[in-house]
Simulated assay, not measured.
Amino acid sequence: MSTYLEFIFLFIIAIIGGVLNKTISGAWFIVFPSLIYNGIQPVIGNSTTAMILWSEQIATSEINKRNHEISKKNIQFMVFISAIGGFIGAFLLATLSQEIFKKIAPYLLLFSWFLFAFYHQILIYINSLFEDKKNFKYSHWQLIPLFLLGIYGGYFGAALGMLIFALYSFYGVKNKTNLEALIILILLVNNGIAILVYVWSGLIYWPYATIMIAGCIIGGNLGKKFEPKINLTVVKKILSVIGAIVTLYFLNL
């Protein structure tokens, strides 16, 4: 594929990824493989994917600062601990050998695909177990799983938002709008800290990242505008199939 066609291909993929990132998530399943297909090493592909999707989030997300279930101080604790986790995860990605990532990544991808494909059923099951759970009550102990998820976010990151949503649903946060706003804030900070480490370590492939960031932001804005007209159920089924194919491919590498 010529360089000209590569950029067109990646730009189109990024637009689709931006739409997915803004509607049903799962953009990782098409952005990351497209970079690998174009010859990028897995660690750099992972870091560049994070950079592309984070840029779309920060350009198109609106953060609701009001949260009636969690105090501002406690949110600061949550964001801070996730940021520390993100730094550690990114540091591990930058310092451990690429062979370790190649061995671990397919199983992390399998886990993230399973979570994406069966997320609705998982949430229903969790809610059925804790139907009588009281309202959310903050505890510092709750930060431990968030810290571990933060490390995961800095090292790999696919489906991190879903994991945090499930965690705080379990903790008793009932207002979906509050929870989604909290997750956006945590993801922006966690991924932002990780990306600083990636940039410092030279793990971003800028020729592709630049064109795909532009495409992803365009896609994100299109996703915001046309989300009510998109059949998200059908799109998720299609992406689940694509994710399964991508996962099987990497498991067989």
Rank of each mutant, 00 (worst) to 15 (best):
H68E: 14
L123N: 11
L196S: 09
C216K: 01
S201Q: 02
T177L: 08
K224W: 06
G89R: 09
N127F: 02
G172P: 00
L20Y: 08
S2M: 00
E6Y: 08
E99R: 02
A214K: 02
F165Q: 13
N190A: 01
G18K: 09
A181G: 01
F226V: 09
L108I: 02
K134W: 04
Q142G: 15
I218M: 12
P228Q: 01
N190D: 06
I81S: 03
L35W: 11
K72Q: 11
L167C: 07
I213G: 06
A117I: 12
I144T: 14
E56N: 15
A181F: 02
I151F: 05
L251K: 03
G157C: 11
H140W: 10
P145M: 13
S25D: 13
S34F: 07
W206V: 02
F156A: 11
A158D: 02
F32S: 13
I164K: 08
L203Y: 03
S201D: 09
S71H: 06
F87Y: 15
I217N: 06
I213P: 08
Y138S: 11
M162T: 04
N21V: 10
I84M: 14
L187R: 02
K174R: 12
N178D: 13
F11R: 10
A159D: 08
Q41F: 05
T177A: 04
F116L: 12
G161S: 15
H140A: 09
